[in-house]
Amino acid sequence: MNSYTLSHLKQLESEAIFMMREVAAQFERPALLFSGGKDSIVMVRLAQKAFFPAKIPFPLVHVDTGHNFVETIEFRDKMAREVGANLIVRYVQDSIDQGRAVEEKGPNPSRNGLQTITLLDTIEEFKFDACFGGARRDEEKARAKERFFSHRDEFGQWDPKNQRPELWNLYNGKKQQGENFRIFPLSNWTEMDVWQYIYSEKLDIPSIYFTHKRDIINRGGTLLFSSPFVTLMKGEKVENMQVRFRTVGDITCTGAVESDAATLEQVIQEVATARQTERGTRADDKRSEAAMEDRKKQGYF
């Protein structure tokens, strides 16, 4: 490469920064959805870069399922403090207590779907008009057709057949009263890009991404953390295993992988040779061929 070319990661970084600035300019009340997971950690770093030396000009918002890994919640609070951002947390439990959401039944009730209700309520409460999400197009096939600026109607719904075309770097954030946008600056990133970025930026990530011993229930091939929210079924047993997680989500449906990867280099090596998508470890996406599309239409991330 000659001196006037940018590596692909630098190009992706520049594209994401461009988008964040575009949102800060085009919208009145943006927010960044922040879970403490690796994609949202990258998003926060990009937001810092976009507005340096000023602080990030929008709050971080976490829709908390209550089904968390403690490590990520601690990490979330620490990171928000360190970057000096305003962190807003809203709880799915509150939506359940208010009767706005109903807990799923079954031996590992997931609150992933219920997050949508709390999220839409939070958007309403703060009148957010644009919410940044860390979703990537390589994650899931319904996401492959998602736009960078994803338009949502007044009910928060996504209409995949009626999306605005996106050309060059011209993003159209115009909307009617009550409508809002989801913004996905990492659309063009792959799982590998995210890991390489974490590596090159020397970003801290929660310990659950590295190998550790944990009590696990093997449920139909998915290695679930044996937490109080997962009921042991007949024939199942709890095993202490050497595992790590590839994604963080609701602990009742986020599967672990057996792994010895203790360093970032080892994790990257493992990602490079992995033969399963990271979503392959999430039981909620296995429920049906169009599970993600359906959730997104209702207003999911």
Binding site: S7, Q196, S200
Partner: peptide
Amino acid sequence: EPITNESYLNMDL
């Protein structure tokens, strides 16, 4: 060829 960290950081698009 495997994609090593170094080469990955220098790839173009």
